[in-house]
Design a protein around this nucleic acid. Structure first.
Length: 573
RNA sequence: GACUCAGUAGCUCAGCAGGUAGAGCACAUCCCUUUUAAGGAUGGGGUCCUGGGUUCGAAUCCCAGCUGGGUCACCA
């Protein structure tokens, strides 16, 4: 990187780096630095009465300096938070040489540098628990200035808020916005709670293919890739359902997977091209059993995070305490539209949609029409956790027919905040029925539904060997995390949400300019003037460019000998 | 994809009846001190997103584009 593209502060930091080296201080030392506590422990457990924490070693990022003559206060931030440190010149420099304090600490260290300290805990006159530093070591010099976020009495000043920079440079976001880290800690806690819950009951965590020859188990547009030596297309999975059910056929009685799925569709506040789904399949259970299982799990997650079942989301409080109401889809539609859809034909449903002002297309089958009515008129009413049950058969090609009504399936979706949080079936294990359902999907696809399912012959073959009655559940982990951490956007619960690629300014090397006969010192000047490519140069008028060059030289006190107009003409020739 | 808002110093933002670019923090040089979003003095730092246009003159007005946010649509 040429020096001209650096900001003043970056240049100052690079100079400080150089000076550290000149003082014999390695700004990037290799050896281990052994800490014996954390800032959190000192804040929580130090007390004057006990006189504990009198020999502490801490490491972390320097996040603020308040320098006052021969004594300074600063803040050090480690993975647990921050603590104030006190540095006295004559204590870290006991001899005559005060360089470590006067030069290194006061001048060469900046906010963002990583240091290690040894010292003892004490309480300042202002009553703040702090660490009195006896030794100081540079562990990493930081070359870019961090945004400085300050906070007092819960009010944040100069917050680092630009969403684009926060998502693109999540590392900066994590350093300066502590609540961001908290969200991700909670996310992991959610997953761990679920995993423990499943493992306690003997269910088995597995991994299944991400690259699939047939993208099955859901209706969505997949990403396509290509395998060179097999010379076949492969799809990034949109779900792992069909593989997990093969494992139930194989004899596991409970399998689960936290799976990254990929869908080549729109991106917005609630959709990222890759996202995480938990799917779990338990043999000899049905969807009614799974409702209780789901309630139990969500209650445990809420309690693990907050110690209570009640969780704030936006301006509503969601209570995950079991049990949740069970409402059939037909009841839900009756309640919110007044229409009874039971036993209605496709044409009758189309009429109902018209009356409700819901747009329909000819490719929509019965299931899709009912889905539209529910989505438009009902879904958003279910704020507190509610099981919507018994979906029409056309919407659920992998679900067992309802034990009491062959038009329906044994399925529920758990609605929270007016959104689907979980989806569950009594899994279809009749291989002949399953084949017919796939064929129905094929007809839908011929009718123009471009997201109808493919027929997975191997999956059908596995069912023909016999799959025990099984209940399966899928939960979107990103959405669950949003709900459980009060995050309004999926980008807030993904470390690295998908973004458009950063626009990279193309810069030609100095050599390319030098080839034109331009002296190296002038190349820097030209680049500072904003001309980064040789091709841009070719479009300039020599006279004006000559004037600009000389003007820039004078204005910025570059102190270079101006070229002649003929030189410039030759460069541009 | 449509509509809408925004893009000015490292960060947060002000400036806009068109007339030499501002503040706070950060940075630099000092002063002072067990301070706390430290205080004081001085100073450096900007392709005002990009490209066109209008104008004697554009950060400001107009058009187009880029990037991002929000709403909606599509899509789970």
């Amino acid at each position: 990187m040429s020096i001209s593209s650096l900001s003043e502060q970056e240049i100052i930091r690079r100079n400080s780096l150089q000076k550290l080296r000149e003082l014999g201080i390695d700004p990037y030392p290799a050896e281990e630095f052994k800490v014996n506590t954390t800032t959190f422990e000192i804040r929580e457990k130090y007390s004057v009465e006990e006189g504990n924490y009198q020999d502490v070693t801490l490491a972390g990022r320097l996040m603020g300096q308040r320098i006052m003559g021969k004594a300074s206060f600063a803040e050090i931030q480690d993975h647990t938070g921050r603590v104030q440190i006190y540095i006295n010149r004559d204590e870290i420099c006991p001899g005559e040489d005060k360089t470590l304090y006067n030069e290194v600490f006061k001048k060469l260290l900046d906010i963002g540098d990583i240091i290690g300290i040894k010292g003892f805990a004490f309480t300042t006159q202002m009553g703040e628990k702090s660490v009195h530093v006896k030794e100081l070591k540079v562990l990493c010099k930081s070359l870019r200035p961090l945004p400085v976020v300050k906070e007092k009495d819960g009010v944040t000043y100069d917050a680092f808020t630009d969403p684009e920079m926060r998502y693109r440079q999540r590392y900066v976001d994590l350093i300066v916005n502590p609540q961001v880290k908290d969200t991700f800690v909670k996310r992991t806690k959610i997953v761990n709670t679920m995993r423990n819950f499943f493992n306690e009951q003997g269910y088995f965590e597995v991994e299944t293919p991400i690259l699939q020859p047939i993208p099955g188990g859901a209706t969505a547009r997949p990403f396509i890739t290509h395998h060179n030596s097999l010379n076949i297309p492969l799809y990034l999975r949109i779900a792992n359902e069909l593989y997990l059910k093969r494992l139930i056929v194989g004899g596991f009685d409970g399998v689960y997977e936290f799976s990254k799925d990929f869908r080549n569709e729109g991106m917005d506040r609630t959709h990222n091209p890759e996202f995480t789904v938990l799917e779990i399949y338990v043999a000899y259970k049905d969807y009614r059993w799974m409702m209780e299982f789901t309630e139990e799990m969500l209650e445990r997650i809420a309690v693990a995070l907050y110690g209570t079942t009640s969780v704030q989301f936006g301006d509503v409080e969601i209570d995950y305490k079991k049990p949740y109401p069970r409402v059939t889809m037909a009841e839900a539609i009756k309640t919110h539209t007044g229409y009874d859809i039971t036993g209605k034909s496709e044409d009758e449903l189309r009429v109902i949609c018209d009356k409700l002002g819901i747009e329909t297309t000819p490719s929509m089958g019965k299931g899709k029409l009912i889905d539209e009515i529910f989505g438009e008129k009902c879904e958003h009413h279910y704020i507190q956790p509610t099981f919507i049950t018994d979906y029409p058969i056309e919407m659920s090609p992998l679900t067992k027919k309802h034990r009491d009504n062959p038009e329906l399936t044994e399925r529920f979706e758990l609605m929270v905040n007016g959104k689907e949080l979980a989806n569950c079936y009594s899994e279809l294990n009749d291989p002949i029925d399953q084949r017919e359902r796939f064929e129905d999907q094929l007809r839908l696809s011929e009718k123009g539904d471009d997201e109808a399912m493919f027929i997975d012959q191997d999956f059908l073959r596995s069912l023909e060997y016999g799959m025990p009655p099984t209940s399966g559940l899928g939960i979107g982990i990103d959405r669950l995390t949003m709900f459980m951490t009060n995050s309004p956007s999926i980008q807030d619960v993904l470390f690295f949400p998908q973004m458009k690629p950063e626009k990279k300014q193309l810069v030609d090397t100095n050599e390319k300019f030098i080839e034109l006969g331009i002296p190296e010192e002038w190349v820097e000047v030209i680049k500072q003037m904003g001309i980064k490519k040789v091709s841009e140069l070719k479009e300039l008028k020599p006279g004006k460019f000559f004037n600009d060059l000389c003007g820039f030289n004078k204005k910025n006190k570059q102190g270079l000998a101006n070229p002649s107009i003929d030189d410039v003409k030759n460069w541009l020739a």
